[in-house]
């Protein structure tokens, strides 16, 4: 036993646990994207940019207007939810019958717009909340309180979504839509309204992720580029629209990033994750959990 503990590097354990903590937030992002794809059949390329806007909202409410973090958070979630609904109403809804590539590109255009909007409105400086949360020490291991909080909040968020999807009429309808769009009217379901609700929900999840990420990362107009690609990879590996697959893939990727970051910078963790993704495509081309449209 003692020998085992000796070879078991304490830092490795720390990295593993940090990976799990990071996985929570990534799973939240993947869930939002999967939800929108599963119901509306579109991919928001600008998803991470919604997170970026949410992070700015947090920054301004907390730093500029002096609101407490826990009061600002619900406002941010609401704001980004509204943005999500607006994105659907203004950009996706007019393109619902257009070829999928046009929907993708339109959200790509929105990515441009959001990035340059942030540049114009907030400048390119890196900003942070200035909240320094304490570090928790378990024996020789250190965990940032921010990460722990993020993980728990992400978990709570996902459980809330799960309950909403399984317990409520609206949630059940959201799960039903992708299985048979045409007959939803026979159930008395207004599909357009469901799309708006789903988009708001997806936006809300991005908003929640923003509240959590802003604790750990500086915000700048291009911060979305750090989370976007990894979220897309998670969704592809887990299977687009597959909630459980996305959840598992998020934790797998988070571990890789975290363990990769153990040996060098976080960005190399991303590279490692991408390499892993390519390898996985060879081994399990149908995604982690095979359910492919």
């Amino acid at each position: 036993m003692q020998a085992f503990l000796d070879i078991f590097d304490i830092y490795l354990l720390e990295a593993v646990i940090n990976g799990i903590l990071l996985g929570g937030v990534l799973a939240l992002l993947a869930l939002g994207l999967n939800l929108i794809f599963g119901v509306i059949d579109v991919t928001w390329i600008c998803y991470a940019e919604l997170v970026m806007i949410g992070m700015y909202a947090m920054y301004f409410m907390v730093q500029y207007y002096g609101l407490s973090y826990f009061i600002a958070a619900p406002f941010t979630i609401l704001l980004v939810a509204l943005l999500g609904a607006l994105l659907h109403y203004l950009v996706i809804a007019p393109l619902l019958t257009a070829p999928p590539i046009n929907q993708l590109l339109a959200t790509g255009g929105v990515l441009f717009v959001l990035q340059s909007f942030a540049t114009v409105a907030f400048g390119i400086d890196f900003r942070n909340l200035g909240i320094r949360l304490p570090v928790l020490a378990f024996g020789d291991m250190n965990f940032s309180y921010a990460r722990l909080l993020s993980f728990l909040a992400a978990l709570v968020g996902m459980v809330a979504v799960y309950l909403f999807m399984t317990r409520t009429f609206t949630g059940t309808a959201i799960r039903a839509i992708s299985q048979d769009r045409q007959i939803m009217a026979l159930m008395g379901v207004d599909t357009k309204r469901m799309y708006i609700i789903t988009s708001a929900l997806g936006g809300g999840l991005a908003g929640l992720a923003a509240c959590l990420l802003v604790l750990q990362y500086d915000v700048h107009p291009f911060v979305g580029l750090s989370f976007g690609p990894i979220t897309f990879l998670i969704c592809v590996l887990g299977g687009l629209g597959n909630f459980i697959g996305g959840f598992i893939a998020a934790f797998v990727f988070a571990e890789i990033i975290s363990l990769g970051g153990l040996f060098s910078d976080l960005e190399w963790g991303y590279v490692l994750a991408f390499a892993f993704f390519i390898v996985m495509m060879f081994i399990r081309p149908a995604g982690l959990l095979a359910r492919r449209r």
């Binding site: 059940t172 299985q179 048979d180 159930m187 008395g188």
Partner: peptide, 19 residues
Amino acid sequence: RRLFPQLSVDDNLKMGAFM
């Protein structure tokens, strides 16, 4: 029939009572 094949019987019935 056009049931929702990947929803449970319960959920299918629930959809019937959506309005």
